[in-house]
Amino acid sequence: MNPHVILRVVAKMLIPLIALFAFYVQFHGDFGPGGGFQAGVIFASSIILYALIFGMAAAKKAMPPSWVRIGMSLGVLLYGGTGVATWLLGGNFLDYTRFAPESTHAAGQHWGIFSVELGVLCTVACAMLAIFYAFGSRVQDLSDEDW
C-alpha cells in the first residue's frame, strides 16, 4: 500500500484547485496582477505536484510528453502568429488595433493581448514541464531509503 496516504488525499483535493487558479490568473491578467508567465508556472506546478505524489509515469500519462513538446512550440507560434496576422491585416508586427480598427473601446487591443498571453501560457507551462520531465525521468523513481 502507498505509505503516503495523507499526502495523496490532500494532493487530490488541491490539484484541481491549483489548476483552476492558474486559469484564473491567466484570464484576469487584464484586471489585476497576473498573466501568462505566472499562470504557466502555476499550471505546471499543479502537474508537478501530481507527478511528485503519483509518480512520473502517471504524470506522463495525464500530460503526455508529446503534448508538452507540441505545446512549447505552439505557444511561440501563437505569439508570432498574432504578429503575422496583424501584418496581414495591414498593420505593423503586433499592432493589435488592426483586429478591430473601428472599436472605440480598443477591442482589438484586448483580443491581441488575450491571444498573446495565451501563447505565453502555453510556452511557459510546457517549457517548465519539459525541464521537469527531462530532469525527473533521468533518475528512476527514488525509494524512501535513497534519501
Partner: peptide, 17 residues
C-alpha cells in the same frame, strides 16, 4: 488543509531518516 499535511510530511521524513 495544507499546514497539517506539511507538518506530517516533515515529521514523517524526519522519522524515516
Amino acid at each position: 488543509l495544507t499546514s497539517p499535511t506539511a507538518s506530517h510530511a516533515v515529521a514523517d521524513a524526519a522519522h524515516h531518516a
